[in-house]
Amino acid sequence: MAYTAEKPPLTESSDDLRARIPGWGVDLDPADRPSVPRERFDPALSGAHWDFPERQPEKWPRERSIEHKFLTPVFGTSCPPRGVSGMMRKYAYKRFSEGRAAHWLILIAADRVDALGSHLRSFLTSRPDNPITETGLLSEFSHRGMSSRVGKKRADLVHQPLDAIIVGVPWVLAGRVAYGGVKGVVKVVGRSRRR
C-alpha cells in the first residue's frame, strides 16, 4: 500500500494473465510499440517524393492562422466564408493568433451566426430546414428511447433535456417573430381597407 514500500500484490500472475487473455504481453517490449520512441527521424518512411509539396491553387483568398509563415501548400476547400459569419471568421483569423481567446470566441460566435443565416435562407428554398428529420428525433420511438433510459443509472439524464431547449428555443423564437410579423401585416391591411 501507499504507506509502506511494497506495491500491493496483483490477484493474477503474468502467467495467469497470459493464459486468460489473448495476446497478453505481446507488446511488452517497448521496441514492439510503433510510437516508441515518440519521434523517429526517417523522412523516407512516409512515401513522400518531394521535399516540399507542390502548391495547391488558391481559388479564393484562403483564411489562415497568423502563426503560419504562409498559406500551407495543401488545404481544405469546403465551405468558403460567406456573409456576416464569413466576415467574422476572416477578422478572427486576420487579427488574433490561436493563442488568443478572442480568436476562438469570435469563430464560435460566427458558427451561430452562420447557422441562423442558413436556417433563414433555407425557408426561401424548396427544402427548408426541418427540426424533426434533421435531428433524427423520431429514433426515440424506433430505437428504444424510453427503455434505454428508464431504470438506468446514467449520469447524462440530468442534462439531456437541455438539448431539447438548445434545439427548440430558436424555433419557438422564430415562430414568435413570424407570428408577430403576420399579425402586423394583417393589422396594416385591415386598417387600409377600413379607410
Binding site: E39, F41, S46, L71, E98
Partner: peptide, 22 residues
C-alpha cells in the same frame, strides 16, 4: 504531407503543411 519537420519524425498527426487554419 509526409515531408514536413513533424512528418519526417513520425508525428503524422502534427503535420505542418495541411492546415492553414491552425
Amino acid at each position: 504531407c509526409g515531408s514536413c519537420y513533424f512528418c519526417a519524425r513520425g508525428l503524422y498527426s502534427n503535420c505542418h503543411n495541411v492546415n492553414p487554419n491552425a
